[in-house]
Amino acid sequence: MAGSPPAASSSREARGPAAPGALLTAPDVARVVDRMAHQLIEKAANGLADLVLVGIPTRGAPLARRLAARVTAFSGTPIDVGTVDITLYRDDLRLRGVRALEDTVLPAGGIDGRLVVLVDDVLFSGRSVRAALDALRDLGRPRAVQLAVLVDRGHRELPIRADYVGKNVPTSRGQSVRVRLAETDGVDEVRVTEPEEPAAGTTGEAR
């Protein structure tokens, strides 16, 4: 499978393979990413040259890279990729405590005048996206900003919507949506967990 991540799942056995009951399994994730890549190519009618995929760490960053790789595979156009760490822009530091910062990396030419597509794993309250928009504002002036997410689980607290959605997942507020990716967690899967279920390692919790 061309879209499969290179991580050797055998060496990451400790973290566990995708158990039955996952909302999305590894093949599902690959399919969803492929579909989103096609949508991006269709919508970017003005040409892919000024497109930049900017991932929101932690799991938005590898997603952006995968998406870019698929867009390139389907269109033949190389795509710029970046990451923007939003930790210092969050409005919930007081509640959640400090965390280690991650990289902010932009293409050499910057983002001025370009089409920036923010990439994240889960869209929930919208606060991460707001923080990312604030961070982008300090980094340059894109022509337009769009949003791509692997999972949209609803419960927005801000007037934000995604332009590209891998999968809409109706959830209750108390549930958690856990995204695991090979690059960060050793395996691709998405699952919905109930509040009482213990967290399975450090997985991408919907923010």
Partner: peptide, 24 residues
């Protein structure tokens, strides 16, 4: 090490930026 790494990240995040300010 966390302090030093964080300082490096902050420095990298602000380098070359017009707005040398974070809302943190």
């Amino acid at each position: 090490t966390l302090v030093l790494d964080t300082a490096a990240q902050i420095e990298a995040a602000l380098t070359g930026r017009e707005v040398k300010k974070l809302p943190t």
